[in-house]
Simulated scan of single mutants.
Amino acid sequence: MPRLVRLYIKQVAYGFVLSAVFVGMLLGFNVANLRHLMFATDGGWIAGFMLFFFNGLVFAGVQFAIAIMRMADPEDKGPKGGHRAPVRQGQLIPIRIRADDRR
């Protein structure tokens, strides 16, 4: 298996573990009375699963982005900013418009 795919799978697993911790803390601290709402409703487990799953997707994406950005060389001394073309300064020219021309 390529290293990048292995890195991606590992970061996705970390993201879903973070999501489980996050949802557990949300329910444990009963933020916005969410625990009562989920346990008192018939389909509350669906809301819990969706909360876990979609937070897992977000956290996995963030974990993978951080891992990729940390792979850069710390001593990257390449060109910074590039060459900028001079901005052309134009002259403003007044344009007369006839006000009595109605449609």
Rank of each mutant, 00 (worst) to 15 (best):
N30K: 11
D76H: 10
L51M: 15
F54D: 13
V21N: 00
A65V: 05
W45N: 15
R6V: 14
M38C: 11
E75D: 14
G48A: 13
M25G: 01
F22N: 09
G82I: 04
Q11F: 03
L34K: 02
F22Y: 15
F39D: 04
K77H: 11
E75C: 07
F59C: 12
P2S: 11
Q89D: 03
D73I: 08
M1P: 00
I66T: 10
R35S: 06
E75N: 13
P79C: 01
L37S: 10
R70C: 00
A72G: 07
S19M: 03
Q89K: 08
I68V: 13
V21K: 05
L34H: 07
G48K: 05
G48N: 12
V21E: 01
N55C: 14
A47Q: 04
N30I: 12
I9P: 01
V87H: 02
M38P: 02
A67G: 03
V5I: 08
G48Q: 10
M69N: 14
W45K: 09
R103F: 03
R102P: 00
A32E: 11
R98P: 02
G82R: 04
A65M: 06
A47H: 03
L7H: 11
V62P: 10
T41G: 02
V5W: 03
F29T: 03
Q63P: 00
Q11L: 06
V58Q: 06
A40P: 00
D100I: 08
N33M: 09
Q11D: 12
A20E: 08
F39K: 08
I95F: 09
N33P: 00
V12L: 14
Q89G: 02
I66C: 10
G48C: 11
M38F: 14
A47G: 06
K77P: 00
A99T: 07
G15S: 11
L26M: 12
T41F: 04
R84D: 05
P86S: 14
A40Q: 07
G24Y: 07
R96Y: 14
P2I: 06
P86G: 01
V5D: 06
G15W: 15
F59E: 11
R70E: 13
Y14V: 15
L4H: 12
F16I: 11
G43E: 02
V12E: 07
G44N: 15
K10S: 01
F53K: 10
G82W: 05
D73A: 13
F49N: 11
F22I: 13
G56H: 07
R35N: 06
I97W: 01
G61K: 03
L37Q: 12
L27I: 03
K77M: 05
G43Q: 08
Q89I: 12
